[in-house]
Amino acid sequence: MSLVNGLPAHILLVHLVVVLVPLTALALVVCAIRPRAAQRLGVVLPLLALVTLVSVPLTTGAGEWLEGHVESNALVRRHAELGDGLLPWAGGLFVLAAAVWWVTGRAAASGSGAFVGARWSAAPVRVAAVVLSLVVAAGAVVDVYRIGDSGAKAAWQDGFSRTASGGGDDD
Rank of each mutant, 00 (worst) to 15 (best):
S2F: 05
V4S: 13
V4A: 11
N5H: 13
L7Q: 11
L7R: 11
P8H: 12
A9I: 01
A9L: 08
H10I: 06
H10N: 05
L12E: 01
L13P: 01
L13G: 03
H15F: 04
V19Y: 08
L20V: 06
V21R: 00
P22V: 00
T24I: 02
A27C: 08
V30R: 01
R34G: 08
R36M: 14
Q39H: 15
R40K: 09
L41C: 08
L41H: 06
G42Q: 06
G42S: 06
V44K: 07
V44D: 05
V44G: 05
L47W: 12
L47Y: 13
L48R: 03
L48D: 02
L48F: 03
V56C: 07
P57H: 13
P57G: 08
P57T: 09
L58I: 01
T59D: 06
G61L: 06
A62F: 02
A62D: 02
E64I: 12
L66T: 05
G68M: 00
G68K: 04
G68Y: 08
N73A: 10
L75C: 09
V76G: 09
R78Y: 06
H79E: 09
G83I: 08
G83A: 09
L87N: 09
L87E: 13
P88Q: 10
A90F: 00
A90K: 01
G92W: 03
G92K: 01
G92Q: 02
F94E: 05
F94N: 02
V95Y: 03
V95I: 09
L96T: 03
L96Q: 00
A99H: 05
W101V: 04
V103M: 11
T104E: 11
G105F: 13
A107G: 11
S112P: 04
G113Y: 13
A114L: 12
A114I: 09
F115L: 11
V116A: 15
A118I: 06
A118D: 12
A118C: 10
R119V: 11
R119G: 11
S121A: 14
A122S: 10
A122G: 07
P124V: 10
V125N: 07
R126E: 00
R126P: 00
V127G: 15
A128K: 03
A129R: 01
A129V: 02
V131H: 00
L132N: 01
S133P: 04
A137S: 11
G139C: 04
G139A: 06
V142F: 06
V142H: 06
V144H: 05
V144F: 09
R146Y: 15
I147Y: 01
G148T: 03
G151F: 06
A152M: 14
A152P: 10
A155C: 14
Q157A: 11
G159N: 12
S161H: 15
R162W: 13
A164E: 15
A164W: 15
A164R: 09
G167K: 13
G168N: 15
D171R: 15
